[in-house]
Design a protein around this nucleic acid. Structure first.
Lengths: 216, 216
DNA sequence: TCTTTCCCCCATCATTTGTTTGATTTTCTC
DNA sequence: GAGAAAATCAAACAAATGATGGGGGAAAGA
């Protein structure tokens, strides 16, 4: 729980620190927190393990940094997306959003892997797990038009967004596993994921305006 | 990779061996493979760690046993379920199945946790990961009436079943995380999960017979 | 140029972790 | 109850792992 990392240099000489962060993201995503050793990360970057500690301190520190970094990336991506789908009808908005988010996450599968392993797998010596669904869940609900109020998104709508996001996360994180099982190639798989998500997720919201209250 | 475990005693004196399996299931589910140590498991059972090795050999062996055991439980449960929903119309079948599976898994969250952590998180020294989606995915597709043929279930339908199962798994495995974020109690959460799953999953299949071909 | 700061590595340490060995106790069989 | 078999534990080991301290070199500031 030490909090002493060197000040940013603001040059591109920051590279080592960032390289560590990137390698850590990939490895924590692939093997989980306990499955990743500081030496593995250091080896991937090509530095000594003590250099890693110099830059980031405790392993848990680095892990937290990875999580924050990922949430940040995702938040930015979603803001971009919001600009694109703004104003479109709900079903169309959903379709575009699913397509865009899916593409993005398939390009950066470490993101979903870290998120899921953080949500589902506990860490020993349970630290101050700042457990919380990132605020962007509410933002998504708002962007999608499920909720008219950005702050006061109802639990019900948050759950709906979670369902959508979880479905995408699962297919991205489980790509290796599912593809090996189904025996298909990457692009086939990605196309199939989109197709399936559209088939399953869209209809529920398609007639949302009319059916919302009737459905519950 | 040693394969010498003692023969079954067929008495209820098998308890220690089984106790280990149960504790291992819980802990592997909670902390993942690398996050769980053999000593943690032994301590939970109240035995020495060497006794654990006497009964199960390598840690990876025990883990594989847990996975097999879980798949077996799930398979049995799904066979039960099939008897109940057989012959009902599709949407109704889906509704009952979701309700039943959700209830069952919320009672045994270690099941989903182990499955997800196995699908999504790699293990170092990647052993002979007999990667495969268990055959029950096809069985579910058949029971649901998505496919008329138990053996030759299409990839598309398998994907649909995976979507459903993944959604349930995610909400069960992520209960602690999501509930803490949403600030609701367990029974509220479970009810909300069912409600949301029904809202999102059912409509896609509701008019499936008519819309199947038109949708793609 | 001299000094200070920053960055990095070598060597090392204390624990933890997977696993085994050998002795001891418990249970079963006759 | 004697002897065989099975189950358990205490102790130990090697390797892996999280973490640190000191030294050396490059760069920056004086």
């Amino acid at each position: 729980m030490v909090i002493n990392f060197p000040a940013k240099k603001s040059r591109n000489l920051e590279t080592v620190r960032v390289k560590i962060l990137i390698a850590a993201r990939r490895l924590f995503g692939k093997y989980g927190f306990h499955g990743t050793t500081t030496r593995m990360i250091a080896r991937e970057v090509g530095i000594d393990v003590s250099t890693l500690y110099y830059h980031w301190g405790e392993k848990g520190n680095l892990y937290e940094a990875v999580v924050l970094d990922i949430n940040d990336d995702l938040r930015k991506k979603l803001i971009d997306l919001e600009g694109i789908i703004h104003g479109l009808p709900l079903a169309q908005r959903m379709g575009i959003a699913i397509e865009a988010i899916t593409d993005y996450l398939f390009e950066h599968p470490e993101i979903t892997k870290v998120i899921l392993s953080r949500c589902f797998v506990n860490i020993r010596h349970e630290s101050s797990q700042n457990i919380r669904v990132p605020e962007y869940i509410s933002n998504i609900a708002f962007s999608m038009g499920l909720s008219g109020d950005k702050k006061g998104v109802s639990v019900k709508h948050k759950m709906q967004v979670l369902t959508i996001m979880n479905s995408i996360y699962a297919f991205v994180s489980g790509e290796e596993f599912f593809r090996a099982s189904l025996g298909i190639k990457r692009d086939e798989y990605i196309a199939l994921v989109k197709e399936t998500l559209n088939f399953i997720l869209i209809p529920a919201f398609a007639n949302s305006m009319a059916g919302e209250k009737a459905n519950f």
